[in-house]
């Protein structure tokens, strides 16, 4: 099977690739969102500590 045939997915390309793309996007986005959330919470906690425990 060559690459062109593979990408065609037997005529189902317009359904198969968006499905894969969407799920991969969701997986990658969730990792970054979680890491950003933790980084933000950490920065906020450090800021509060620097301010002497007051908001």
């Amino acid at each position: 099977m060559n690459l062109g045939e593979f990408l065609e997915m037997g005529g189902y390309a317009v359904y198969v690739w968006p499905s894969l793309g969407l799920v991969v996007f969701a997986l990658v986005w969730n990792v970054f969102a979680a890491r950003r959330l933790h980084a933000t919470a950490r920065a906020e906690a450090l800021r509060r500590l620097a301010a002497g425990g007051r908001p």
Partner: peptide, 24 residues
């Protein structure tokens, strides 16, 4: 992913706790 989100959640809940001072 849940563990990373959980850490953020703990930080927000414990923001005035003394252990956080040492941890960070």
């Amino acid at each position: 992913v849940m563990l990373v989100r959980l850490r953020a959640e703990i930080l927000r809940r414990e923001r005035d706790a003394t252990w956080l001072r040492e941890e960070l």
